[in-house]
Design a protein around this nucleic acid. Structure first.
Lengths: 248, 248
DNA sequence: CGTCATCCTTGATGCAGATCAAGTCAGAAA
DNA sequence: TTTCTGACTTGATCTGCATCAAGGATGACG
């Protein structure tokens, strides 16, 4: 655990897998050089906590590989996931010095971090970063609003289908599959994490996944490896009007 | 309707009621002069639609007075509110040319608008605007995440209490009441709109409001005028761990 | 090889909130 | 005044998901 915290990752920004999608996407070579010198990598094992809500947070950063979650907990233990962080997603809020949510790695995760202070100073001088961060935040807001529709108005079956569609589409875009016809991916979340995402219990998640399997909407190999024979069918089950093009 | 669309509002930015909270909050006098010349006011009557999802949107703007809602609708008519726009809140997304959601005025509303193109150009040259917009968007994202917890994990009674607390706190901050002890306000939403906010039916909203009244958590005069004798008590009913200081 | 823990599935039952169905109330129009 | 309409309330019943409970599968580790 300690070891992994400090483990160095000898990446150059130039061949960074999230170079064109992360907060640094718009930076010019000279700006990138500065960032390159500021940045440091941190690794987290699956299940490890990145930060607790309320704790002092002196860095911001991007998920390079892996999946992490943001969750909020009520005093009696009910928990709701409020963010699903995939590669290129940003964590931390400039201008705030404590974490607002629990962040947990659900797979092994590598993050590219910057100490908050220098990053904020750089933001003030480098419109390319603030610009990109605004764009990413607006995208996240759209995703949060789409998610609110799922939480507020969809049935359990539709919720599961929606989540599978989101993960499937994002995975497809990373692996250059097309998000139609057959797509294949691994679930990066336990049943419980899916329940926390969707405002359900893990039993209901399990039942609905079994039902979708029984109805041929998905096929499972083990508990995590999912094949969607017809993505169109899955989208229908999700109950959206449009094809959900917003989320990416 | 047409008349109200075009009605001019002879405001100077200097004495604008949302001057210090809106997207222009950080602008300097010279920048304000430019905005002052670009801006135009639009008024909407209660119930009037500001814009339909998917429609071309060639302006952005701020709510000056009144309350509007953003809603998303599934094909079978299920509706979820995804944004509640109070004075100083921003509507529209720079860089996008169609509306993503339905926007409806729920009370009479006055908006301060800018044509999108000139506003975007100004944003590119005026970091103060982009800066403030980033900050506001991050706040909205926090609010959306808080809302997700409400939608996903709270009971009907807690949902109602949460909504009353949010409206009460915001109203209090506008009218310089303190958000503790007794506070008094008018609901700017119908029962149906509250239901769409909270992912409930209007019957359940009505029943839970009656229950809170019966239990002395709130008092009602007519259907809309609410007195909260002890704001602390209402917060307890909302089931949050903290005092929800984030939302404002 | 067993055993232990974690994650998951499935069944039985209960209940919160949805749905269906009458009303009530207050303000506007006639 | 009556009538109408839109917003709201309340009651009766239904149902989707939660809850409670038991057991299965897989992999790590002795």
């Amino acid at each position: 655990m300690l070891k992994s915290d400090l483990q160095a990752m000898p990446h150059e920004c130039g061949d960074c897998p999230i170079r064109h999608r992360a907060v640094c996407a718009r930076c010019e070579p000279t700006e990138l050089t500065v960032l390159d010198q500021m940045k440091f990598y941190r690794s987290f094992e699956a299940g490890q906590t990145v930060i607790w809500a309320g704790d002092r947070m002196d860095f911001v950063g991007s998920v390079v590989t892996g999946v992490a979650t943001l969750t909020q907990t009520l005093e009696d233990g009910r928990t709701q996931m409020v963010g699903l962080l995939l590669p290129s997603d940003f964590i931390g809020r400039p201008g705030r010095d404590t974490a607002a949510y629990n962040a947990v790695a659900t797979t092994d995760v590598v993050m590219c971090c910057f100490r908050k202070k220098p990053f904020e100073e750089m933001m003030a001088h480098t419109p390319h970063i603030a610009e990109r961060l605004l764009e990413m935040t607006l995208d996240e807001l759209d995703a949060a609003r789409e998610w609110m529709v799922v939480l507020g108005r969809k049935t359990a079956r539709e919720k599961i289908a929606s989540l599978l569609a989101i993960i499937g589409r994002r995975t497809a875009s990373l692996t250059l599959q097309e998000a139609r016809g057959e797509i294949v991916f691994d679930l990066p979340l336990t049943r419980e994490a899916m329940a926390d995402y969707l405002g359900l219990t893990l039993e209901t998640v399990s039942r609905q996944i079994s039902a979708l399997k029984r109805d041929g909407v998905i096929a499972l190999e083990g508990k995590r490896h999912v094949t969607v024979p017809d993505f169109r069918l899955l989208m229908d089950e999700a109950g959206d009007d449009a094809d959900g093009g917003l989320l990416v």
